[in-house]
Design a protein around this nucleic acid. Sequence first.
DNA 1: TATTGTTATACTCTATAACTATA
DNA 2: TATAGTTATAGAGTATAACAATA
Lengths: 149, 149
Amino acid sequence: MKKTIPAVDDVDTSYLESLIGYNARRAALAVIGEFLEQMAIYDLKPVEFSVMSVVVHNPGVTSRQLCAALNILPPNLVGLIQILETRGLIERKPHPHDGRAVGIHPTDEGEALMMEAEVTAKELEMNVGSKLTPNQVQTLVTLLQKIYL
Amino acid sequence: MKKTIPAVDDVDTSYLESLIGYNARRAALAVIGEFLEQMAIYDLKPVEFSVMSVVVHNPGVTSRQLCAALNILPPNLVGLIQILETRGLIERKPHPHDGRAVGIHPTDEGEALMMEAEVTAKELEMNVGSKLTPNQVQTLVTLLQKIYL
DNA sequence: TATTGTTATACTCTATAACTATA
DNA sequence: TATAGTTATAGAGTATAACAATA
């Protein structure tokens, strides 16, 4: 009996596609790819958008609070803050109670930019969600949050 | 009228939590974190697990096919293949039709390892999914696939 | 003694250009 | 001319240790 070396026509990924983690990662990368393209007009990467969004909705938030909320390590936030400050989108003011901390505040320019950017992000959600009904989008978000929150 | 510098008690992330991309990324990172811990006993990182899984279910698959299936760039797969080959989990044989290509095959050891690892991965899914009913897990996977497939 | 913000640094992941062998 | 696999390398993302200032 002769041993034949098999070739593969169509790759079967059905096992991986049964795993939550695999699907969540692939979906996240797809959406973030879209996001990168759409947000290029604002010169905002996903992390920068996240930071700006939290700052706009929480004026005076501290670095530590940002790190905890967005799961960023403190040393890695420093550079982000510096970039956003240099661009005039945020400013740092002394914290009212805690002399160690610094409050991060949006500038008028930062707020104006995020007003537009958050609308664009919502539109992008609609595009991604065009493959899903509004109900399905809501279900998806709810289920994802059950996992990590 | 006196200007007060505000402080933030509880950080409001409700806007971000309404975005599919944000939730998908956070959920993926949470699951992958669990995965990293559980798979440490097999010395398999998520990407290595993915590659091994596809190889086991598709003996003779080529590098290009792996790259396409797993969304990995060819130069970045080379090192992975070398590691797995050095560990004796896969072996490379000439492709039956195409002299340029190389077929990647699981060794007996590789198959045995993945038999166990895939069971562990499924158990891990159950843990993650313990926050979800089996029905919800199925719904979640289906919705995620609609986004990236 | 603990925490905030920071620097320096290392490690991993991802991306691009260019080469060779074969189709 | 196009494709499979590879090399070298650059850039982004993520990680730990250690320090000064303040609590």
